[in-house]
Amino acid sequence: MNLADIPLIDQHAHNILRPEVVAQYPYASAFTESYDPEIINYHARHTFFYRRSLREIAALLNCEAEEAAILARRESLGLEELTQIYFRAANLEAIYLDDGLQPETILPISWHERFIPVRRILRLEILAEQLIPQSEDFAQFLARFISELDPPPVGVVAFKSIACYRSGLDIQPVAEEVAAAHFDLLKQQLQNQPLRLTDKSLIDFLLQQALLVAAKYRLPVQFHTGYGDPDLDLRLANPLNLRYLLELPQYRHVPLVLLHASYPYMQQAGYLASVYPQVYLDFGLAIPFLSVSGMREVIRQLLELTPTTKLMYSSDAHSIPELYYLGAKWGRQLLGEVLEQAIADSDITVAEAEAIAVAILRENALVLYQSTPEIDTSSLSNSF
């Protein structure tokens, strides 16, 4: 199946880094989840993902498939033209950006809007980290935290939690007085240094406060699940740990989007999506970071049990615009291959496969986020 003509809704990605920041890092650092210098400077260049990607990037930029040649071509084109090339090649319709990843180093959402319609994903833990140092006591902090979410800020299409990174997905009930005590202890430990919130009781409490707001507005909440950089404990990243939240009736109408195919827990994620109406999945990061056979297997395992109305495309692109293109290229190609096999297996018909492809690549996201206002494209530049 050729799915190239289907425009994509990239329902989870990150801002591109400022050029002066990108210049400080080796090119290979964008192709690994590790931040260890030995991985970045040597081993990352020996992954299937990196080697395959050099050829694909070079073909698009019309240069040799060597890192030095690609870097020279990138320099000659400049970031704006590069972004235009990659976004057009990806055939993107809109992107939903989590701008909480390295917020001090990224280009603003307004920069990205020069190329494509953008909606914002609000990262909850970053919001808390910003408000805690500014708040004298827990009551003031909690009031400010909720007021920042209710109503959701203009342009925000979803909330997002990185509890998976900080304390794991086994979210448990926390009494307000317990959260307040942990807040007071945290405030005592602050020494005019950047705050990184890792306190499980506070994270669990604040996440559930945010879920109550999300329930009020039927706003999706995205969860990092599965693999990422070494900051997380992969053992705590299994989405099955979310059972407590999934069973609570007050969150029944909050769409929960399990990001990154929950890799390597694809079948567990698919099971959750098959039995809990509020659970949705995407397959960004696993695609394009895995080998071709690995990416194909991710989509295949997700669709073993997941209703096709529950699966969505994303790239989880970050840092450089290449990742938007690579995610789009392989997301389309391998979804098409898996659907072709499903036709051969008699799971679905050709017509059903075509409808499923459109649903996964764009329509499911449009339906899920339909409670938000229409994207205003009147301010988009016509120069790109």
Rank of each mutant, 00 (worst) to 15 (best):
R74C: 07
A269W: 08
L290F: 08
L124R: 10
R218I: 09
I356M: 10
H318Q: 12
P103V: 11
P277C: 05
E363M: 07
I343A: 01
D345T: 14
A69V: 12
I360C: 13
F223C: 06
A13P: 01
E374P: 02
E337W: 01
E304A: 06
P321L: 06
L17M: 10
S110W: 02
Y325P: 01
H14A: 08
E80R: 08
A180C: 07
F138C: 05
A317S: 13
A90V: 06
S291T: 15
R218K: 15
F31A: 14
V358F: 02
R243N: 05
F141V: 05
E304K: 06
E304I: 02
D233H: 02
S315F: 03
Q208E: 12
I203N: 15
E322A: 00
S53L: 07
A90K: 11
K329E: 05
P108V: 07
A286P: 04
R166D: 09
L60Y: 05
F283Y: 15
E129A: 07
A342V: 05
Y251I: 08
D99K: 03
D199S: 12
R166Y: 08
L232Y: 03
G294A: 08
V157S: 13
I360D: 03
Y42S: 14
A90W: 10
T309H: 09
R166P: 04
Q102K: 12
A215Q: 13
I132Q: 10
G228N: 14
R252D: 07
A58F: 01
R332T: 03
I95W: 06
C164N: 13
R114P: 00
L211Y: 04
V221D: 01
P373K: 13
